[in-house]
Amino acid sequence: MSQWLTLFQKELLEMWRNFKWIWVPITFILLGVQEPLSSHFMPQIINSLGGLPDGAVIKIPPPSAQEVLIKGLSQYTSIGVLIIVLTTMGLLSGERKSGVAAMILVKPVSYESYVTSKWVGAMLLMWGSFLIGYLATWYYTGILFKWVPISDFFASYFYYGLWLTLALTVTISLSAMFLTSGMAGFLSLAIVILMNVVTSSLSNWMEWSPAQITTYANKLLLTGKIPDSLFPSSLLALVCTIIFLLVGIFVFKRKELASS
């Protein structure tokens, strides 16, 4: 356990030294907050750009606070996932490629600890940044629109987090398999996009797909009721996460650290 903590502390320190603890949360704040701001100030923005021609009538119904939050969340599942993949894809492949993994693992360090310490470190960064960013979004939505109940905020935060966790774990797992981080990143994005596409095009058969969590969480926000399939698909997301993590550890153990 103390060895795991040592590895984990090193991860936290590294993320601090390379400023991940600063730029990832800030990016997440900007990503989310832009939604309530741009929705609220849309008329002013249009005016400052020269306004509409005389006589043109466009009626845009003001969005509800929930809709603004959902728009913000959609930023996290697109650009947010991209950022998560970019910050995670090199964690294992980079260290193995540079050779520093061999320096560490020639010491009596357990491979499981080595991989999971990185996984937990990346999770902490993701959940933390997402919390800060989404909280800011919720706050601005509250000021500019209406206050969404904090319990709904936390529920949607949690379920979206599960989906992001799966994306992150896929990336870690692929990072264990490939020496080039670019390859790991590309394939992770491909898998996430594929899951989304398959789920939305075959939605009748994909009721329990992990990719549906976000849809269900949106429903939860809008109606305040828990959709039937939310729990099964969340459970499936958790199971997938664990499988990807185990596969990642397994592959990492089997790979030779030094190749020639």
């Binding site: 103390s2 060895q3 040592t6 090193k10 050779g99 520093v100 061999a102 320096m103």
Partner: peptide, 22 residues
């Protein structure tokens, strides 16, 4: 190893303490 690699962002003493604890 023939070409030792370290965490460049650590200081020498930090790295030694790190592998020592490991």
């Amino acid at each position: 190893p023939q070409f030792p690699v370290f965490y460049d962002w650590m200081s020498g003493i930090e790295f030694l303490e790190y592998v020592g604890k490991l």
